[in-house]
Amino acid sequence: MGGVFIRAVELILKGNREVLFIASTSLRFALTSTVLATVCALPLGLFLSLSPFKGKKLIIVLMNSLMALPTVVIGLLVYSFISKNAPFGNLGLLFSPGAIIIGQLLLAFPIIASLIYSALSNRDPSLPETLDTLGIWGIRKYFIIIMEAKTAVLSALLSGFGRVIGEVGVSMMLGGNIRWYTRTITTTIALETSKGNFELALALGIILIVISLSINFLLHVGFRDA
């Protein structure tokens, strides 16, 4: 086992082309889907935290429930829309990076929206009134509200990123695990482990652990005093 570990570390340190490609592909998919999910989740979280309306609790319960949705269910859902004979089959998205990003977006969206809503709901209730009375309205008001909760909002983004970088179901079902195209860290680990090729699987596992630790480090240390 020690020898396998050493060879795995060597793969990383020597800059193995396939390891780098797979790691960069995973990061690219996860970053893109997190950014897109944030663009959709931020206005929703803000709206839910600031506006009282009928049915608000239902939306919040729904979002909280969707946070725990299994990745294979999201994979199945998206698959049913983009497979050959499905409504969006003619777009040719199945087994492409686009399909993985759509699936990961759906995975991250409820997590980010829900956590942003929680973050903004826990703010001091006098903040919006203070901004109103200072004549700060419109987009600037919402921007300041988000910035005042920036640590919690960043935590929400990183939680969403953490969820998609480590998922396997969506990438496998919608990306097809195609070498040099849609193969990600998690799908490679699953494949290479089943083939008995532990070096590559372990090298990618180490990279995934480093990414996860970095996220946790950012969450608990980097943004503590932001």
Binding site: D124, S126, L127, E129, T130, T133, I144, M147, E148, K150
Partner: peptide, 10 residues
């Protein structure tokens, strides 16, 4: 308007 416990910005 100044609140009883005023909001203090970061």
């Amino acid at each position: 308007y100044v609140h009883q416990t005023p909001y203090i910005f970061s």
